[in-house]
Design a protein around this nucleic acid. Sequence first.
DNA 1: TGTACATCAGTGAACGCGCGTTCACTGATGTAC
DNA 2: TGTACATCAGTGAACGCGCGTTCACTGATGTAC
Lengths: 223, 223
Amino acid sequence: MVKNRPTARKSSAASPRLPGRPGADSPELRPRLLDAALACYVRDGVAATSLRAIAREADVTPALLHYYFGGGEQLLQAVVEERLVPAIDGLREALPPEATDVAGLVAAFVHGIGEIVARHPWLPALWVREVLCEGGALRDFLLRRVGPQIPVLLAQRFAQAQRQGALNPDLDPRLLVVSLIGLTLFPAASAPIWRSLFGADDIDAAALRGHTIALLDRGLGIG
Amino acid sequence: MVKNRPTARKSSAASPRLPGRPGADSPELRPRLLDAALACYVRDGVAATSLRAIAREADVTPALLHYYFGGGEQLLQAVVEERLVPAIDGLREALPPEATDVAGLVAAFVHGIGEIVARHPWLPALWVREVLCEGGALRDFLLRRVGPQIPVLLAQRFAQAQRQGALNPDLDPRLLVVSLIGLTLFPAASAPIWRSLFGADDIDAAALRGHTIALLDRGLGIG
DNA sequence: TGTACATCAGTGAACGCGCGTTCACTGATGTAC
DNA sequence: TGTACATCAGTGAACGCGCGTTCACTGATGTAC
């Protein structure tokens, strides 16, 4: 049993001032450790990342990582809570809260994803990759914490719009959510590949957004 | 230097009949090893799969795996050549060889992906996941062996159709290829997740295909 | 202020474990005669 | 046909290594007086 782990100590907020050195582990260290872990997860995948690799990335001893987080699984959980959750909260807040027309809702989603990607370039690849892993820790996180908040909610709004005749009746409202993610997160996650494959250095975020909106708006036809 | 590895022996085809037991390693064993490796790659990811895990999956000693393939990297290459390449060849053959209208080409692609997924249910998740990994072995494979054959070729055909006014001018022909993959492979790869998220047991392969074609044909509008 | 002491963030070395790989060996199965 | 022998697919045990974790320890920094 480790007794004086920083995370544990800090959570007991009302501790009386004791004699001796007050705990004040350097405030820049913990975020730096989280960033190093995130970088490793993004580069190599969560399952293939060792604690020692993260320690090397942060130029720190493995014992320090264990001291701060208590182990690999807890470190992953900390990265999820303090890096992933805030990033995804940004998306939920970007969606219009009240009933809007489908085009506006979809445009808000596409723009929201674009902004998330601009602010957190690491997110799409990590997300798409880890959520597709059968045993992935992020998969559970998606199903429990994100799924009910964004995809299910979107699907309900699409279904309602379709009942009112404001959406292509041949679409499935639930699959439309999947299509939206496939048209936004997946291209963002695979950007390095198609850029290299097509030599497409001229395609920036705005071009990608314009293309996606045009496809969703009218499909392949020439309108 | 291992001398009598089966792969090596079999490749020297013109060896004279020597006295002694002729080499005849059981013909069912090698495919079984490849299948076990593939199953582990799909379940846990390539980077997180150990040779010993594959050996356990195949109920075989690690030494046997090494004897057959010479190491983890060669085993992965064998799985790529003998499992991945044939599966993807199926897609290229499904695409119409001659100039066709955009709708027909896209429909052939969507149907082709659908058939591949039906025949090789493991492919989408493995594909999407490993291709998005920065250091992934499959990423190189995509860029070298698949990219020039399918995506680049499709993009060229789309660009030509667009010049002739047969494609929505606001689309980017290259990004349209990315969109197509995002609308087909990604939903297939994430099917277990959205099925569980939406309780969508009623959506089968045909429904997914119909939805995708409808979205590509007319977009969100009610036509 | 100066001195003694308590605290605790962080360390270095060691642990047991599973990994990929090696290699001397086995024993079933073929050929030679 | 029967016997001796050559072959080689596959094995079992061991190797060095990097892993996650542990724990006695250090030493800078605070408090007590």
